[in-house]
């Protein structure tokens, strides 16, 4: 049912039938190129900020007086940026036990992701009212797309669309914390290792936790299996939510499956590099780094009705049958929503 509605990848790519489509793709591609250096630079965003500020006084004097209002806003932003820079350079900021750096996430990492979220994938968010305004909740989502961009987009979606601007704390695979640079950024963005201890600690503190129980099975599945949910592990997320008595919010993400259509998997290379899979797409690794640019698909993220867990007795977390049933319930709900969203979708790219 789902496959019937998915526009086959090859059709969309090789055909130059629609006149505006190639143009659209090119413009999107160039836009992407614009954001690419920003991603590369994201480790040290401060110097660029500082240099931008340095030439401000020079240009200021020529500005006509009618721009005074704009200028006031600009000055405020400069002042804000400078005090941010000051705090950063002197180490005068706070991180929590998990290494989450709220200031850096809000001011730098989010602003780097936002253009990708708004302009590139044009994410449409539905059902954000299902996320509670306060208290712990566990968001369970499908996982896809070779690179975990879906998690990052979900984080931006929750932060930007939710009225309380809640921060999503994602649970990530251990591979993330083994890679240099990636682990540093992940910790600072509030992610932590996907293990019961960390999840319970975060939920117990009333945080919003995001988990993708499919793990590598979901993110590294071939293109032909798109939108087919994989097994949900052992359902550890359900017992965690039960123990902390927090609601489970199923979340369906449409669009992430097509960003890197994985047509092959270089298993030997993956084993050599220590990765769970090594994707081969129509463009990667044949076109080099250019092939690593994701396709500009149109995304929809739908948060579903929360599944409440506070009605169960405390010992229910040890009941394997209940665990499997609840896991299946969450899985079914996500899968059904995925099918529904796929039927509604006009095309992969817009």
């Amino acid at each position: 049912m789902a496959d019937a509605k998915v526009i086959p990848f090859d059709d969309d790519r090789s055909r130059a039938g629609a006149v505006q489509r190639p143009a659209r793709r090119r413009s999107a591609g160039s836009r992407r190129k614009g954001s690419e250096p920003a991603l590369v630079r994201e480790v040290q965003p401060l110097p660029s900020r500082a240099s931008a500020q340095d030439d401000v006084p020079v240009t200021r004097e020529e500005e006509p007086p009618q721009q005074a209002n704009d200028e006031g806003g600009l000055e405020r932003r400069i002042a804000g940026g400078l005090s941010f820079l000051r705090r950063r350079l002197t180490g005068d900021y706070e991180v929590d036990d998990f290494g989450y750096d709220e200031e850096l996430t809000d001011q730098v990492l989010m602003s780097l992701l936002r253009p990708v979220y708004e302009k590139y994938f044009r994410v449409e968010v539905k059902g954000v009212e299902n996320i509670p305004a306060e208290g712990g909740a566990l968001i369970v989502a499908n996982h896809s797309g070779t690179l975990p961009l879906d998690g990052l987009m979900m984080q931006v979606a929750v932060h930007d669309q939710h009225p309380a601007n809640r921060h999503l704390r994602l649970l990530a695979a251990d591979l993330v914390f083994m890679l240099p640079v990636v682990n540093e950024l992940a910790r600072k963005a509030g992610h932590t290792l996907a293990c019961a201890e960390d999840a319970e600690r975060l939920l117990g503190r009333g945080e919003l936790v995001g988990v993708m129980p499919e793990g590598f099975k979901g993110i590294g599945k071939p293109f032909s299996e798109r939108y087919k949910l994989q097994r949900f592990g052992r359902g550890g997320f359900v017992s965690t939510a039960l123990r902390q008595r927090t609601p489970i919010i199923p979340c369906s993400i449409v669009g992430a499956e097509e960003i890197y259509p994985m047509i092959g998997n270089a298993k030997t290379l993956a084993r050599l590099l220590g990765f769970p899979y090594f994707p081969l797409t129509p463009t990667f690794p044949w076109l080099g780094p250019l092939g690593a640019v994701p396709l500009p698909t149109k995304w929809t993220i739908q948060f579903g009705e929360p599944i409440l867990t506070d009605g169960y007795p405390p010992e229910a977390a040890e009941d394997p049958m209940l665990m499997f049933n609840l896991t299946d319930q969450v899985r079914e709900q996500i899968q059904h929503t995925l099918y529904k969203l796929l039927v509604q979708r006009r095309s992969v790219f817009f």
Binding site: D54, N69, G72, E75, A79, G91
Partner: peptide, 23 residues
């Protein structure tokens, strides 16, 4: 850190010195 903070403050003083004008 004091020296770095001072350097940032000096940069801040440049636009902010003229910052009295826009209002």
């Amino acid at each position: 850190p004091e020296a770095l903070a001072g350097a940032v403050d000096r940069i801040a003083a440049l636009p902010l010195a003229g910052g009295g004008h826009p209002p």
